[in-house]
Amino acid sequence: MNIFRLAGDMTHLASVLVLLLKIHTIKSCAGVSLKTQELYAIVFATRYLDIFTSFYSIYNTLMKLVFLGSSFSIVLYMKYHKTVHRSYDREQDTFRHWFLVLPCLLLALLIHEKFTFLEVLWTFSLYLEAVAILPQLVLLQRTRNIDNLTGQYVFLLGGYRGLYILNWIYRYFTEPHFVHWITWISGLVQTLLYADFFFYYSQSWKNNKKLQLPA
């Protein structure tokens, strides 16, 4: 475990906590895409099936349980909690997220390291995670008033991806045979999707103005 990965994991954890804080404490999910949250729940459910087959560390298992638990509880909150559900921007959150799931599944069936059930699902989760933020980015673009917590949530998620790239560069130079093209390319695609958001986020921060994405 290097400092970049630990920082990346902590940033990821912070993003989830920010979102839970907004939903649990303020009882609002305004500006949060349920489509993206559903995709993350699928991502973690398919990637972390190895909880049952392999053990890496207590840290690894605990974090997996945290991300599984938080992603499913966010989805349940948004769908079934009366007050939270009322604040959901249903009319704006119209991205056809199932159109992302099928191509990712097909791609995982075609491009993978090993053709086994767990390996294909693991690869599918990598491809799906890369594009899972898209419904959220579209919703942000449509939302007139992006509140601070929603902006911070997306900023932290993007930061987590950026730190993972630094982690891979570090591991490539320090660990022999650390080459993982599928992980790297999907991770790079995922990080690039945030580039636009990062630009406007830094602008709003610099000018001390409310974050607003151009249509």
Partner: peptide, 10 residues
């Protein structure tokens, strides 16, 4: 092995 190394990540 090398593919195990990627799966120790989250």
């Amino acid at each position: 092995s090398s593919d195990e190394a990627a799966k120790d990540e989250l």
